[in-house]
Computed example of a mutant assay.
Amino acid sequence: MKLVIITSISEFEKEIKQILVQANVKNFSYKEVIGYHNSSNEAIGENWFGTEMNENESILFYAFVPVENVDLVFTAITKFNSQQETKSKIHIAAINIEKSN
């Protein structure tokens, strides 16, 4: 079991839900959040929000995912990101779960 954390701009909410369903993730939670990035020392092209704005309407998904399904989620997100023309991408991380109840 791994804890999968996904963040992106709110506009990708529908696509993330589809990715999770297609990867056979049966239960997940999500919440609207304000994403913040201090881009004062970066060029706009390196800012993952894709603008000079420091705050953006974002979304945070989290799910406990069986190990065998984690690569399906990563692969689908990598494919989605490779097809985007925008600077904003879906970000994903997986954390090992030592114990759960």
Rank of each mutant, 00 (worst) to 15 (best):
K99S: 14
E13Q: 13
I44F: 04
H91G: 03
N81R: 06
H37I: 07
S40C: 03
A94K: 10
V25L: 08
Q84N: 08
F28A: 00
N41S: 06
L20C: 12
E42N: 07
V33F: 08
N24K: 15
E52T: 07
N96W: 10
E55R: 05
V65H: 09
S40L: 06
K87C: 04
I77D: 13
F49D: 01
V4K: 00
T75I: 11
K2W: 09
V25I: 08
K17R: 14
I44A: 04
Q18N: 15
I19L: 13
G35I: 07
T7F: 03
P66G: 03
F49R: 02
K14W: 06
V73G: 14
I90E: 00
E46F: 07
A23L: 11
Y36W: 04
T75G: 13
V70T: 13
A94F: 11
I90N: 01
I92A: 03
S82Y: 12
N54P: 02
P66Y: 14
T7A: 01
Y30I: 02
N54W: 04
A63C: 04
H37K: 04
D71N: 15
Y30S: 08
F64K: 02
F12D: 14
S88I: 00
S82W: 11
K89T: 05
I44K: 15
K89D: 01
K89S: 01
V67F: 02
N24A: 13
H37Q: 03
M1Y: 05
F28Y: 13
Q22G: 09
I77Y: 14
V65M: 06
V73I: 10
V73L: 11
H37N: 06
A94R: 08
N101T: 09
N24P: 00
S82A: 12
W48K: 00
T7N: 01
N96F: 12
N54L: 05
F61M: 04
S39D: 06
V65C: 05
E15A: 13
N96M: 08
K17D: 00
H37P: 04
E98S: 15
S39P: 04
E55Y: 11
N56L: 04
S40G: 06
V25M: 06
N41F: 06
T51N: 03
E15I: 03
K2M: 09
Q84T: 08
G50S: 04
I19K: 09
N38Q: 04
E68M: 11
I97W: 01
Y62F: 14
S100Y: 11
N24I: 08
S10Q: 06
E98W: 05
E15S: 14
I5E: 02
N41Q: 03
F80A: 12
D71R: 14
E46D: 12
F64M: 05
V73C: 13
K31P: 02
F80N: 12
M1D: 01
